[in-house]
């Protein structure tokens, strides 16, 4: 029995393709359908309810605001870190990669628990701040937006760093050397040569971090508590507590559309540079 190359490749890819369609694209379609499901046919009532309630608009605004702050902080730490990682010896780089990957591969639940211990009233950080006389006796960082930002930056910094590192390591070192021999100072070279060339990595990392930040609920729920709701936490509550699935689906669609709008220009841009 002979088999063509085409048949062999099709056989290899088919199980994955079938699974992907049935267990990934169909569920997403189901969610889209449910978001407009009403008792008497399709309706936009669930979207209307979300977009006309100040409470939910506030949740949405908080999600966008916190995600933007988290992304900015990650970029500010991630760029220098990636630059340093690209420029140290191979041995030092291995240790830095471990330093970044170990938290990345640890369960989010576990990492957030660490911050709960550090930030709670009897935790290390409020205690140190109290000893320094900076804050009062009942000061706690738990259940604040600050706690969410701190925890999320730690969770997402590895993504930003690795995105930028991939680009920084490919920058031709001779460009930097040329700038230095032409009389540029170190920081000037960094600003005028390395930073523009790293921009694709910074943009890709920022989009990734913003997306992950806007869609996470485990860390915000545990560090922010139930009073400080973000969009993903609100979706989770609609599914598990109020059991309002169509409303949960509508909120997920709002998140989905927001992320698509954010990613679309980037996909078109990177498609153009590749093609």
């Amino acid at each position: 029995m002979t088999m063509t190359d085409r048949a062999e490749n099709t056989l290899l890819i088919l199980p994955g393709l079938v699974l992907l369609v049935l267990a990934f694209f169909v569920p997403i379609a189901q969610m889209l359908v449910l978001s407009v499901a009403g008792e008497n046919g399709p309706t936009l009532a669930h979207f209307q309810r979300f977009l006309s309630d100040p409470y939910y608009l506030n949740v949405l605004w908080r999600t966008v605001r916190l995600s933007a702050i988290i992304t900015l902080i990650c970029a500010l730490i991630g760029f220098p870190l990636a630059y340093i990682m690209a420029h140290v010896s191979a041995r030092a780089r291995l240790w830095l990669v471990i330093m970044v990957i170990l938290p990345l591969m640890t369960s989010v639940v576990v990492r957030t628990f660490g911050w709960m211990v550090l930030l709670s009233r009897s935790g290390l950080i409020p205690e140190v701040l109290r000893d320094m006389g900076l804050v009062g006796r009942n000061f706690s960082l738990m259940q604040t937006e600050t706690a969410i930002v701190v925890g999320m930056v730690q969770v997402l910094l590895p993504f930003m760093t690795l995105s930028i590192l991939g680009v920084v390591t490919r920058i031709d070192r001779r460009l930097e050397e040329a700038a230095r021999t032409m009389g540029c100072g170190f920081l000037q070279t960094l600003r005028t040569v390395v930073l523009p060339l790293s921009a694709p990595g910074i943009v890709a990392g920022s989009l990734l971090v913003f997306t992950l930040s806007a869609s996470s609920f485990v860390t915000p729920n545990l560090l922010g508590g139930s009073r400080i709701q973000v969009l993903a936490a609100s979706i989770y509550r609609s599914v598990t507590q109020t059991l309002d699935w169509p409303f949960a689906a509508a909120q997920a669609v709002i998140l989905f559309v927001g992320i698509l709008v954010l990613l679309m220009p980037y996909a078109r841009l990177s498609g153009r540079t590749n093609g």
């Binding site: 990934f24 169909v26 189901q30 969610m31 869609s215 689906a249 997920a252 998140l255 989905f256």
Partner: peptide, 18 residues
């Protein structure tokens, strides 16, 4: 593509379909 789509969106779709 499953790497790009936030897990929460997939999770909710899977729960509803199942």
């Amino acid at each position: 593509s499953p790497l790009v789509l936030p897990t929460i969106i997939y999770a909710i779709g899977m729960l509803m379909l199942w």
